[in-house]
Design a protein around this nucleic acid. Structure first.
Lengths: 219, 219
DNA sequence: TAGATTGTTAATCGATTAACAATC
DNA sequence: TAGATTGTTAATCGATTAACAATC
């Protein structure tokens, strides 16, 4: 099967969530691409293409079997596997991610948290003891951890990334606003929250300005 | 000036951050589009196009003046204005956002937090008192709040969205995994963290499989 | 069978990149 | 002036959407 692109992966995730919610409310046997498309405000062809990409077959005049779709997506994205992750940086955001229990349904379990602040080391968040940063490399080696979640201050993240990949980390979920440099076979997924502010601030600015125009017309 | 598209806005944000960091380290007078492009791993033409879109003029053989670029981006995105926001849902993620002080440089100030959990109401996070949810509409009206940050459980977010827009909210920063329905003139910026897991899980799966192949060849 | 839905190819759209004259 | 960089038009690339025969 051809390698799936990022946009396809993200849509598959959305389909999966939609169908999970749907079946949680009331069990549905089948669903059409048009129904899914409407719920997510995209084109039905898109849905069929994406399903085709992971080998899903629909039934003419009926649509797709919900259970089968969910299962296929889970297999395609790798949610049927289990992988252990570590988290570095136990500030507010790190704590929030540790406390979030929703990742387990996707096969992700955070097995350890690290920090270099003496006052937080030894503490516990959501059942996870905070370990000193110097133990991170032995821990990763011992547990064959391949995913690291970075919620550290900006200035240490690149240095950390170097050290993480050295001991076998193959994916970094990066919540720090840094463009990390990593080997070609390591995936960095950037989750820079404040990027969203560009769209928000711009919208509010434009909106305020257009309001001013109307006020002008009113007078 | 033509309306800027989302992708352009996001890149402008990245330019702004890059240049802020750069000048913080050591003051630089000018920078070329090629230098910026290299740092962000994009095409130099892209940078010049984006700058052109906000009316920035470079100098042949020299490049762009760093200060002027920063200033123009701030004006274009509306970071030179101040806007007040409220936050709804003071769980772990809500708390993390309240505690984060980095938004102020973009003109955003969170002025109140709301929750409907009696045990958290009256408490304080990062200097912000948590108010009961029933006070949210009067508060928004009184303070003319136009931005709301949603970090509530999924099941209440659509109902909240309806109530928020009723009293004048024009932008919702949505951290809940729901497709919100809002009037056409209200912006919803979705920040669904677990979407990123699709890319991460898939990469780890593919990576594990390719490793298996090599192991097979070794034998 | 008739009709709705799939699966796929072709057309469109938009974003990115290449090319190069104009500029300092 | 010579050479590096901008600004802009044209070409390419990829993603989305339209069209429609095949299917149940």
């Amino acid at each position: 099967m051809a390698r799936l692109k990022r946009l396809v992966l993200e849509r598959l995730m959305r389909y999966h969530r939609l169908l999970s919610e749907l079946t949680a409310k009331k069990p549905v046997q089948t669903i059409t691409s048009a129904q899914i498309a409407k719920a997510l405000d995209i084109d039905p062809t898109q849905v069929r293409k994406d399903f085709g990409a992971i080998g899903l077959q629909g039934m003419g005049r009926v649509g797709f079997e919900v259970c089968e779709v969910c299962r296929s997506i889970r297999v395609a994205l790798g949610f049927d596997r289990n992988y252990e992750a570590i988290l570095v940086g136990t500030g507010h955001l790190g704590g929030a991610l540790l406390a979030y229990s929703g990742f387990e349904r996707y096969g992700l379990r955070i097995v350890a948290a690290f920090d270099n602040d003496p006052s937080s080391i030894g503490g516990e968040i959501a059942g996870c003891t905070i370990k000193p940063l110097r133990e991170i490399k032995p821990f990763i080696k011992a547990h064959k951890v391949r995913l690291a979640i970075l919620t550290t201050p900006v200035d240490v993240s690149q240095d950390l990334a170097f050290r993480l990949v050295e001991v076998g980390v193959k994916a970094i979920w990066n919540f720090t606003p840094t463009q990390l440099i990593v080997p070609w076979d390591v995936l960095v997924r950037n989750e820079h929250i404040s990027i969203g502010l560009s769209e928000i601030a711009y919208h509010l600015k434009e909106q305020a300005e257009s309001e001013d125009e109307w006020t002008f017309l009113d007078t």
